[in-house]
Simulated scan of single mutants.
Amino acid sequence: MTVDDRAPARSNVSLARRAWNIRRKALQMGEVQGQGYIGQALGIADVLAASYFHAMDYRADEPEWEGRDRFLLSIGHYAIALYAVLMEAGILPEEELETYGMDDSRMPMSGMASYTPGMEITGGSLGHGLGIAVGMAMGLKRKKNPAFIYNLMSDGELGEGSTWEAAMSGAHHKLDNLICLVDFNDQQADGKSTEMLCSEPLGDKWEAFGWFTQRVNGNDLDAVVAAMDAARNSDHSGPRVIIFDTTMCKGVPFLEQREITHFVRVDADEWGKALDVLEEGKPA
């Protein structure tokens, strides 16, 4: 995919529609199984849209192209969100949507790189993604490959020591080809992330570790795009991090209001209602 090929998708209207499409596909996959990490998929859709249709360089028909930017999903349970954007990007065929989570599907409920084109790593054991990203970024540097590594991680992973070891290592090796995307939705399985193990002041911590740091509203596409551009174009000699404050279940207000959204309960009759509500906010 050349820069010219990607140019039409760079308008905010187009990105808003991409994000809407990602949300819709995620809900459709959730309806297939009657469950899924829908809250996270709806919340991170804007970041995924900006990543794949504004920031990253890749070839949909050649997922293993050596010059591609690598997108690492450290949080394996967000796989439903990644499948949605891979379909939207044309890397996965949309016809496979109805196989989500089924035996022999290329889209298991927790992401596995050996199954799915476009999925770079098998995530799920939280706290490993950034370490893998550091290794990949070092490898690209040694091969003089100008591609970037994008690592999407959760706020829960900020409580893992391995995350901060990787952060220290990335800065030490001056990995200016590494961009970490932190989804800060303040939800974990046992409650609010800030109540489980508070990581604030988060921006100050990343800066102290030597990273170029930004924090923005992850559901504001203009802010997301600007942060992506600043991260990629910064003259900072080390790695970059963007902390995205996101709203779980974004786009479906009656789900946003649920008290527990880490694995949000969606009753059988509510999948259709969620899709109908989403349809009402469909971008032009």
Rank of each mutant, 00 (worst) to 15 (best):
S114R: 14
Y115N: 11
T116K: 05
P117T: 00
M119H: 07
E120Y: 06
E120A: 09
I121P: 01
I121S: 00
G124A: 11
S125W: 08
L126W: 09
G127R: 02
G127E: 02
G129C: 13
G129I: 11
L130C: 07
I132F: 14
I132H: 14
I132D: 06
V134D: 01
G135I: 06
G135W: 03
M136V: 09
A137D: 01
M138C: 12
G139D: 14
K141A: 05
K141N: 04
R142M: 15
K144Q: 15
N145M: 03
P146I: 05
A147E: 02
A147V: 00
A147Y: 00
A147Q: 02
I149D: 00
I149S: 00
Y150N: 04
L152H: 03
M153G: 04
M153Y: 09
M153L: 15
S154Q: 09
D155L: 05
G156E: 13
G156K: 05
E157Y: 06
E157A: 04
L158S: 01
L158R: 05
G159K: 10
E160D: 09
G161K: 12
S162M: 14
W164L: 04
E165H: 07
E165C: 08
E165Y: 07
A166Q: 01
A166H: 01
A167T: 11
M168T: 14
M168K: 10
M168R: 12
S169I: 08
S169K: 09
S169V: 12
G170H: 01
H172M: 11
H172T: 14
H173P: 06
K174R: 15
L175F: 07
D176M: 03
D176N: 15
N177F: 02
L178R: 03
I179C: 03
I179S: 01
I179P: 01
C180S: 14
L181R: 02
L181H: 10
L181S: 02
V182Q: 06
D183N: 15
D183E: 15
N185Q: 11
D186G: 11
D186F: 10
Q187I: 13
Q187W: 10
Q188R: 11
A189P: 01
A189G: 11
A189K: 07
G191L: 11
K192M: 13
T194F: 09
T194Y: 09
E195D: 14
E195Y: 09
M196R: 12
M196H: 09
L197H: 09
C198S: 14
S199Y: 08
E200I: 05
E200R: 12
L202H: 06
K205D: 00
K205L: 02
W206F: 15
W206D: 02
E207T: 13
E207K: 15
A208D: 08
G210F: 00
W211C: 00
F212Q: 11
F212V: 03
F212P: 03
T213F: 09
Q214F: 06
Q214A: 12
V216T: 09
G218H: 04
G218Y: 03
L221W: 08
D222G: 12
V224R: 00
V224Q: 03
V225G: 02
A226F: 06
M228Y: 15
A230Q: 14
A230G: 06
A231V: 03
R232S: 05
S234F: 07
S234V: 07
S234A: 15
D235H: 10
D235V: 10
D235Y: 05
H236C: 04
S237N: 10
G238K: 04
G238C: 03
G238A: 13
P239C: 04
R240T: 08
R240A: 10
R240Y: 03
